Simulated assay, not measured.
Amino acid sequence: MRIAVIGAKGLPAQQGGIEHHCQELYPRIVEQGHQVDLYARSSYTGSLFRDTVNGVRVISIPSLNLRGLDALSCSFLGTLSTIAGFQEQPYDIIHFHALGPSLFSGLPRLNTKSRVIVTCHGLDWARAKWGRTSRWILRQGERNALKFADDMIAVSEDLQDYFQTTYSRDTHYIPNAPASYAASDPAFQFVQSWGLQPQKYFVFLGRLVPEKRPDLLLEAFATLKQTDWKLAIVGGDSDSQGYAEMLKQQYASNEIVFTGELVGAKLAEVVRGAGLLVLPSDVEGMPLVLLEAMNENVPVLASNIEVHQKLLANGRGLLFEAGEVAACQQRLQWAIEHSKALALMAEAARQHVQAVYNWDEIVQQTLAVYDRALMLSSSQGEQERQMSQV
Rank of each mutant, 00 (worst) to 15 (best):
Y162K: 13
K310F: 13
S180K: 15
L123H: 07
A293T: 04
G315P: 02
S156F: 06
K129Q: 13
V289R: 03
F163Y: 12
G206P: 05
D37M: 10
A13M: 09
E142C: 11
Q197F: 03
C328I: 09
R127F: 04
K9W: 04
E245Y: 04
T133N: 07
Q309W: 10
E245N: 14
Q192E: 10
E324N: 15
G106N: 07
N358D: 13
V369C: 06
S81Y: 13
Y91C: 07
M1E: 05
Y91D: 07
N144L: 11
R135C: 12
N295F: 00
L110T: 12
M152R: 04
R2H: 01
Y201M: 10
H21L: 05
H338I: 00
I256H: 14
E324H: 13
A322G: 11
P280L: 01
L159Q: 05
H121D: 12
G317W: 01
A355E: 14
M1N: 00
G242Y: 09
K225I: 06
Y167G: 00
L196F: 09
A183H: 13
A182H: 09
T119K: 00
V263A: 10
S238K: 13
V53I: 11
D161M: 08
E219P: 01
S75Q: 03
H172L: 01
T259P: 07
E255C: 09
V369Q: 00
F96D: 06
V356E: 15
Y370N: 02
A179E: 13
D282V: 01
H97P: 08
P62H: 05
V353G: 03
K129S: 03
Q189K: 13
P108I: 12
S180A: 14
I305Q: 07
V369P: 01
M246I: 08
I362T: 02
V353M: 03
G10D: 04
A302Y: 03
V36H: 15
S60D: 12
L99E: 08
Y167E: 07
G235D: 00
V118N: 09
L99H: 04
L319D: 07
L276N: 02
G317M: 01
P90W: 03
M1D: 07
M246R: 15
L80W: 13
L279A: 14
W334C: 07
V353Y: 03
V270L: 14
Q199C: 03
G323F: 02
G275S: 03
A145I: 09
P175L: 05
Q354S: 12
K248S: 10
P12A: 01
T223W: 08
I233T: 01
K225E: 15
I153L: 02
S388E: 14
A373P: 01
P210K: 14
E284D: 11
L146Q: 08
W194D: 10
L374W: 10
Q380M: 12
A268R: 02
R372K: 09
Q380L: 12
L218K: 00
K266V: 00
N295G: 06
D360R: 09
L77T: 05
T82M: 08
S303Y: 04
L205Y: 05
L48S: 10
D51R: 11
L110W: 14
Q364M: 09
Y173M: 09
Q351G: 03
R213M: 04
D239C: 06
L103V: 15
A265R: 11
W334L: 06
S156A: 05
G195W: 02
E255H: 15
Q15R: 14
E245P: 06
